[in-house]
Amino acid sequence: MNNKINVREGVNIAFEMLEEEIGKIVNNLAKSIAEVSKKQDFERTKKLIDIAQRIKEYKNRLIAFKEEWRKIIGNEKAIITRIEISSQNGSSEAREQAPRELKQNNKTGMRTPEREFIIPILEALIELGGKGKVSEVLKLVFERMKNKLKTYDLEKIPAGEIRWRNTARWARKMMIQEGLLEPNSPNGIWEITDKGREYYLQHVEKLKSNNSVRRTSE
Rank of each mutant, 00 (worst) to 15 (best):
I13V: 06
K206R: 14
S86M: 11
D41W: 05
V213W: 12
N89E: 15
K139R: 14
N89R: 13
D153Q: 04
G23D: 01
I72T: 11
D50L: 13
K107F: 13
Y152N: 03
T108W: 11
E9S: 04
K56R: 12
E84Y: 14
L140K: 05
E178H: 09
W170R: 09
Q53T: 11
E21S: 14
G160K: 04
L207E: 14
V7R: 01
P158M: 09
I162K: 05
N89H: 11
N89Q: 14
R163Y: 04
G188E: 11
Q88G: 12
K208D: 14
N187V: 10
Q40N: 15
L207R: 10
N184V: 06
I73H: 03
L180C: 01
I85P: 00
V137I: 07
R111Q: 06
E35I: 09
R95H: 09
L128K: 05
I157M: 03
H203T: 05
P99E: 06
M1L: 13
F117V: 02
N28M: 10
W164N: 02
E67C: 05
L149E: 00
A52Q: 06
T45C: 15
I83C: 05
S91W: 10
E136F: 03
E21M: 12
E155P: 01
E191K: 05
E9R: 02
E68Q: 08
Y152P: 02
E127H: 14
V36A: 07
I63P: 03
E16F: 09
K77I: 07
L154R: 08
L48F: 04
N60W: 11
I63A: 11
N60A: 13
K46M: 11
K31T: 14
L207G: 03
P99C: 09
G23K: 01
E21H: 13
V7L: 12
A78V: 13
M17Y: 12
K47D: 10
V141Q: 02
D41M: 08
N184H: 15
A94Y: 05
E84R: 07
N28W: 00
L181V: 02
L102A: 09
G10C: 06
L128M: 08
F117L: 04
L128Q: 05
T167P: 00
I25K: 03
M145H: 03
K47M: 12
F142R: 04
W170V: 04
R54D: 07
V26Q: 09
E127D: 12
